[in-house]
Amino acid sequence: MDDRPETRAASALTVDPVRNNVAEPSGGGNAPAVAGGSAGWRLWEASRATRRGTLLLASLLAWQAAAATIDNAAFPTVPQFAAAVGDVVSAPVYWVSLGQTLVAWAIGLCAAALVGVPTGLLIGLNTVVDHATRVTVAALQAIPSIVLVPLLVLIYGTTMEMKVILVFIAAFWPLLMQASYGAREVDHVAKETARSYRFSRVDLARYLYLPSASAFVATGLRIAATIALLVTIGAEIVTSAPGIGLQIQLGESNGQPARAFVYFVTASLLGLLIATVFRRIERLALFWHPAHRTRQGR
């Protein structure tokens, strides 16, 4: 039941409440005891590594089968892919591209957090500001930020600045929204209690608002981090700004699909890594959150 409170937080937030089930083996259902199973079956049940290994093998076989069926030069076979991995990873271009993508992602995300979180808290805390910005924010955040790429490219060229600004805009909205929810969702009783104890403003922020908002901000960070990676790579593909996206595009247009696939898999692993890291941060932030504890009482 570890990831339950997240459901509550996220569903109130009208954002991606995607949950991972990894921590909850066999999806919560009680697996019947394997009393009469064979030795092989017992090993299967006991060892996660065996299951993971089998899955990897099965996926590769499925890939190979798909490549053989499609029989299109644009879809490399597993051996072709494996050969390309060595080639690509040993060249400095690979690491430089990876760096170019990650730097834009990181700077844009940090800047968005530095501006978006305080703005969101302000919106959540102040009724007047909240109402004044509500419609405008709803309208602006519904615009897919990737459409700004053609405009930003004209202004900044295919540069790092262009990517950073785009990432900033894309990551800004989820952070702002989450922070405002966080400030708004402060427990009413706790607020009244703190007020009647005459907490100073600093103490209110320190002991009430920040802890309460941190869980929401962590969710916002996870969403923003994923979106940021998406738009970074998207911008690189559309504009040929240097980075992983450009390498995918180059591989495809130069008739080297195996190389493009290596970069594509790299991008996917990067996505997986970012999602895992930020989900862990989110868990840490949620660990002691009141929503987590009161949940059991309901």
Partner: peptide
Amino acid sequence: EFISPLLEFFRALPAIAAVPI
């Protein structure tokens, strides 16, 4: 439970990167 890691991989991948492919 068996297939979950593969699905997580697909969910996390930036789908934009698949467009050129």
